[in-house]
Structures are given as C-alpha cells and as structure tokens.
Design a protein around this nucleic acid. Sequence first.
DNA 1: CACTTTCTGTCAACTAGTTGACAGAATAAT
DNA 2: ATTATTCTGTCAACTAGTTGACAGAAAGTG
Lengths: 149, 149
Amino acid sequence: MDQHRVTFTLNRLVGELNTTADRVLRKDFGLTYSQFLFLVHLDSAGTVSSSVLAKNMGVSRAAVSKRIPWFTSRGLVRSGHTPSDNRVLTLSATSQGKRLVAEMSDHLEQRFREKFDSLEGVDLDELNRTLLCVLDHFQQQPREAAMAT
Amino acid sequence: MDQHRVTFTLNRLVGELNTTADRVLRKDFGLTYSQFLFLVHLDSAGTVSSSVLAKNMGVSRAAVSKRIPWFTSRGLVRSGHTPSDNRVLTLSATSQGKRLVAEMSDHLEQRFREKFDSLEGVDLDELNRTLLCVLDHFQQQPREAAMAT
DNA sequence: CACTTTCTGTCAACTAGTTGACAGAATAAT
DNA sequence: ATTATTCTGTCAACTAGTTGACAGAAAGTG
C-alpha cells in the first residue's frame, strides 16, 4: 500500500477537480458537470448514434437513452431517426446547445487558468503528456485476453 | 477546451485504473474496489466513529451507515457503541478484515508493479509528488468563502 | 437547573448509473 | 428466400450514492 498510492492521489485530485467544476457550473449555468460532459462529447462528435455516444462517454447505452429527453426538452440536443437505418437514433447538439457548451468551456477554462497561473514549478502541459503516456502504456496491456486464443 | 484537457486526461486515467483494480479484486477476492477502499480506510484509521470514517472517505454519513451490515455480517468489521458517548458507533476492522485488506493490497500492488516496471521515461514517485503539489495548490484556494466575513 | 445548540446515526425519497432481457431492423449465411 | 446473427434503443429491476428530516445524546449557556 505504498507504491500504488499514486492511484489514491489521482483519485483525490480528480474528485476535487470535478467537485469544483460541478459547483461552478451549477452556480453560473444551472447545469451539472456531467451534463456539461454530455454536451461536450456530443458537440465534439458532431452527429452520432446513441450507442456511439455511449461508447465515447464510457457509459452504457441505457444511461444515454434515459438522459436524452432532458436535453431535447430544453432545446439543447436534437434527436431523430435516419432514413438509412431505422434503428439508430441520431443525436446532435442544437445551435443553442453548441453556444452553451462553448460558454461553459470558456468559463471553466478561465477559472482553471486563474487558479493555476500562480502555480510555479509544475508544467501542466508536461503533466498532461506524462499522464497520456501512462494511460497509453496502461491500456495496451490486455495481453492475457488477446493471447488466450 | 484546450487547457483544461488535463482534467479530461486525469478522468480517463483514473477511470481506467479503477476499472482494472475492480476487475482484479472481483475476480481474485470477490470484493469490489469500493469495498476494498472501505476496508483500507477503516484499517488505516484504526478505530473510528461512523461519521469520521465518512469524512475520511469523502462520502455522506448515510452512505457509510448503509454499508456497515454488509461488512459486519461477513466478519470483516466490528461495530459497537462506546460507553463514553452513546451516540457514536465505533467501527474497526476485525483481524480477518485486516488480513484480507493486506492480501488485497499486496495483490494489487504486485499487479501494478508488473504493469509499470516496463514503463521507461516516467518516474511514478515524481509523478505522485507533482500531483500532490497540484492538489495542495488547488485546495488552498477557497478564499472567496474564507474572506466573505 | 432549564434551555438551546450541536452532533450522532438512521430513515425515506430521490438520482444516475448498472445489467439483463426484449422487440424490431439490418445484415450475413445457406 | 428463409434463417440466423448482430446491432439498435428501451424497459424493468437493481445498486450505491445523494439530500433533508428526524430523535436522541452530549455539551454549552443563561
């Protein structure tokens, strides 16, 4: 319980970051952090099916399915069936949704900068690179499954 | 949505780490990662009240309260009222609980090492220090609340 | 002492996820 | 062409957390 304490630190940090982001967004936009994330994913994906969005978000199809009405009823997301494949429900952010998510992103980024401008000795870009490296290394390891043929 | 992408990376990484830890612990011990965390906190705290444990874990008192029977019924946790204060419910890990959490920690750490021995170019201890520094800087910032007197 | 406040654990009602089952549409196989 | 498989979104039932209310015990205050 000493070496993998990095994982504890990571958990504490993201907990703190997400809680703070949530508080800010609730106060200034009336939306949850997880609602923000939904819009971010949808916005960056353009037009996607419900199940692709679920996969992108790392969440079950059912979870996405249940949240859709909340967003459509507020005019933030548009949903409809494509003629090409009657199964899939096509989702995209409305212009209002895109505008909102842009505002929220800007706001959050500004807050974030304010906090970390004064942080000397840590290069956040380098930190990000390191984390991506760790993540990459960690993900390309399911050999047990791949080799079990 | 460019600068605070560090936060996205962080979220992805801890998601991956926790999911993996959960899978390992379920398979080899039949316990959840969050059950493991419960025991870790309790073990490292020694003997604590329910509400202190809740605070340590960053979770509500009700959440802890509801989970206790699961652990006591399996003989992993002991709970009882102290004579000094009849309100508080005193919790501690049984010797069986301690043994289990030690085994789980060892197992997890071993798996963790296996994965990251081969990772060159990243010093995990240094990463941990950096993260702690960021966390520290981030936490000592609630000036708005503190100054509003 | 009487009182108010604070703190404890628990309850009910809610939220946002999960899994497993399902029907229907698209695709693959024979 | 039929049959089988796969993929879609949704439903029901469950899980693990939340908040807000509560009663009872402890501590503070007049």
